[in-house]
Nucleic acid binder design. Structure first.
Lengths: 228, 228
DNA sequence: CCCCCGCAAATCCTATAGGATTTAAAAATG
DNA sequence: CATTTTTAAATCCTATAGGATTTGCGGGGG
């Protein structure tokens, strides 16, 4: 069930399909849609009180994020849950990509981006860390913002595309991993280490700090996550 | 103008949108559609003798390949030409990802995959290399198959996702507009070097060979590419 | 009790219609 | 002839209708 968000403002001219896209994306990230469950086109259209056409277009665009999977003539389903091994693989992939985006971004850093990163870390600190999604959603948002800001400023759109291919999955795993946020203090310190290296304009150190961070995240998750 | 392809066989149950997707993709790669020109939904529907609905869905899926760009309420246009810098960025990204997929795949190589790689190289050798897309499409297909086979057998689905996010081979034609494949002999030799290292089960050597290959492709393209 | 069949609802998919807006052409005016 | 205005066509977007198929369910037969 996808419920329309409250604060839907009637903007002048907007493409309904874009709105539907955001709505479904939010439902996926909120965990309102469980992994493996079907996402019916007609049903979603009824839920959001629109016609199936924009829903169809929104889902077509969502497919490439990997959050939903499509089977021809069968429809869409929420992507299946992650196993422990999947998470390890995801982190291994991030270990390949993110140090590079960090290094590249460090070389072309601007004051605006720097303050954006500083803000993201500040938001991380003050974000609540409760067990329910409503509570740690701000934390995940800030975390994602930090990493994305770096990827966006790598100056290489293809590295950004590679990052985006993984980005959405990171939050999802945390959401359904059931572990909540248990390592916030460590993670914040590691983010600050990355930030300091970037601030000093040392690309190698920044890349190393990012490697350290992602590696530690992987390690901690492997300890905390339920076995099997 | 997107003309329907000749050998359209009436398969039992097929999703029309999938067929439309392939049709538009082919038109894009053939150069029948020039960069920057609009791709009208209604117009394409008329050309292909279908309704706008499947065309809309196909274009939504095509957008993430970067071959077409969408502006809300304005429609789709063929993506602008690939600049030298764009190509350099693409190769830089591949230099990050592909050595890793190669190394991983080497560790878990199977006879089936090995023979698939051998076949891909064989196809590369006998593929024509003319200047029009219709001629060198087989070459690009074989090239793509080689690299994809490696990524698929890395054992890490997220590395595969990152590789796919680059859309490497699909993008290449955008640079070779009217030039064709000029470095086939070199490229084939480099592929063979990668293959031999994999065959010998030496992951580091395989990764190094892949780095060498992609780096050389980048270098040659920078020399051959038209204009500055 | 279990299995199978038939009907109804749901679903995917495509076509069509029409509203809102932009674009292009044609007509009218200076 | 140049410029502006008006009109027609094209385009994007959404809604609706209906065909083909699948899925769920309840009743009847073994």
């Amino acid at each position: 069930m996808i419920t329309p968000s409250r604060g839907a403002r009637p903007v002048s001219r907007q493409v309904l399909a874009d709105h539907v896209y955001e709505e479904i994306l939010e439902s996926l990230m909120d965990g309102r849609l469980e992994p493996g469950s079907p996402v019916s086109i007609d049903g979603t259209a009824r839920d959001l009180d629109v016609s199936p056409t924009p829903v169809r277009e929104a889902l077509a665009r969502l497919e490439h994020t990997g959050l939903v999977v499509r089977v021809a003539l069968k429809g869409y389903r929420v992507a299946p849950v992650f196993s422990r091994d999947d998470f390890a693989n995801l982190m291994d992939a991030r270990l390949v990509i993110e140090p590079v985006t960090t290094q590249l971004a460090c070389r072309r850093m601007s004051p605006e981006v720097l303050s954006g990163l500083r803000q993201a870390i500040a938001d991380l600190k003050e974000a609540p860390r409760g067990p329910s999604f409503a509570e740690f959603r701000d934390y995940l948002d800030a975390d994602e913002r930090f990493h994305r800001l770096i990827a966006e400023n790598s100056g290489n759109p293809f590295m950004l595309a590679a990052y985006e291919a993984l980005g959405g999955q990171v939050q999802r795993f945390r959401l359904f991993g059931g572990v909540g946020i248990t390592d916030a203090d460590h993670a914040i310190a590691e983010h600050q280490a990355v930030f300091r290296a970037i601030e000093l304009g040392d690309p190698e150190a920044a890349a190393a700090a990012m490697t350290e961070h992602v590696g530690k995240v992987r390690q901690r998750a492997m300890q905390d996550a339920p076995q099997a």
